[in-house]
Amino acid sequence: MRHPRLNAWPSLNRLPQWRRRWLLAALVSGGWLGSQARADAAVALAKARPDRQPRASGQPAALRVFIDHLIPADELTPAASTLQVHQRVWDEASRDPDGVRLVRTVCQWLDGYGEGFATLSEAERETLVVWMSTAPWESPQRRFFHWVRERAFTTYYSQPASWRGLPVQRPPQPIGHVLD
């Protein structure tokens, strides 16, 4: 048998659309960070500084920083941006108006912190990412987190430069495997 669909993305299509629910979701989220989120989200769209506004067709700067936070360089492999992961994720998002809207909205929200997401410390960025990873599914932050995580990891690990340190560093064919 061939399993037709193996990803970890849940079916949500009977839930209210995020476009109508994301502010509500931020409002009902609890805790200190929830307060931060709802306060900052409320002002992000209205008060984002002009120099942080995304260009009409340009990639939001926070996207690259966010993806590099998920996939930083280490002693064996490069950061995601070195492999142009952010550009390919943006290209993919750009194929769908909802994707563009999601990425822009959440990147604007990210840039609402401090002087912009890129200026935050590692620990501050981590705090935001942790919150996004557990936010309600109705919120754009949660959807953005999982969508970007899945797409970024997929793009990154489909490039041989990311395979150093793994027991196999080549495609399955043409050599195949000698069984252990």
Partner: peptide, 19 residues
Amino acid sequence: IGPVSYATRLVEGWGAAHK
């Protein structure tokens, strides 16, 4: 079977620890 599947489905988290 491959690193994409491990990264997206089997290994939790992100960052250097995820690698």
